[in-house]
Amino acid sequence: MIPVQLVTGFLGAGKTTYMNRLLEATDERLLVIVNELGSVNIDEQLIVKMDQEQIELSNGCICCSIQSDLSKTFYQLASKNTFDRIVIETTGVADPAPIIQTIYYDDYLRTRFKLTAILTVVDASQMDRELFIEGIHQIAYADVILMNKVDLVDDATLEQAHERIKALNPTVRVIETVQTAGDYDLTENTFQLSRVDEQLLGQLTDGHTSVSSLRAITLTTDVPLKRERVTQYVREVLMHYEDDVYRLKAIVRLDGETSKFVVQATNQLMGATFANEPSDDSRSVFVWIGKNLDRDALARGLQACEVDA
Rank of each mutant, 00 (worst) to 15 (best):
R21V: 00
D197C: 07
S282F: 10
Q138T: 04
F74I: 00
Q303V: 10
V121E: 06
A272R: 01
V196A: 11
G38W: 08
L22D: 05
H162R: 13
D308P: 01
V87M: 06
E242W: 02
T120F: 04
Q5I: 00
E176S: 15
Q5L: 05
E36M: 03
P96D: 08
I118R: 02
A13C: 13
Q203Y: 12
F83D: 13
S213F: 00
S210W: 02
P224L: 13
N20Q: 11
L254Y: 14
S210A: 15
D106L: 01
T221A: 15
V32K: 07
N148H: 08
T16R: 02
R110F: 06
Y105P: 00
Q303A: 07
R195V: 14
Y246I: 12
T187A: 14
I289M: 07
A272P: 01
P170K: 12
S58G: 08
Y104M: 02
M19D: 04
L152Q: 15
G60D: 03
D185F: 07
L204P: 01
T16Q: 12
I145T: 11
N169K: 05
V144L: 12
P224Y: 14
K226D: 11
K149R: 10
D281H: 14
L6K: 03
A140H: 07
I47A: 09
A167V: 08
V211M: 10
L200Y: 13
S284V: 00
D107M: 03
V172N: 10
R229T: 07
T205F: 05
S210Q: 10
R173Q: 15
T180A: 12
G9T: 14
P3K: 06
E36Q: 03
L22F: 14
D308F: 14
V48Q: 09
L146P: 12
C61Q: 06
R235P: 00
L168G: 07
V40Q: 04
S213R: 11
S125D: 15
L31I: 01
N189R: 08
E306V: 10
Y18A: 03
V252W: 13
D244Y: 09
R300C: 04
C64Q: 03
T73Y: 01
N41K: 11
Q76K: 15
E56Y: 06
D155F: 15
G135E: 10
D197K: 09
V121R: 08
I2V: 02
V172K: 11
S71H: 07
H137V: 04
Q138E: 10
N189Y: 06
R253A: 14
A272F: 11
L6G: 07
L30A: 03
K249Y: 11
V262G: 01
R21G: 14
K249H: 14
R253P: 00
L219T: 11
T102H: 01
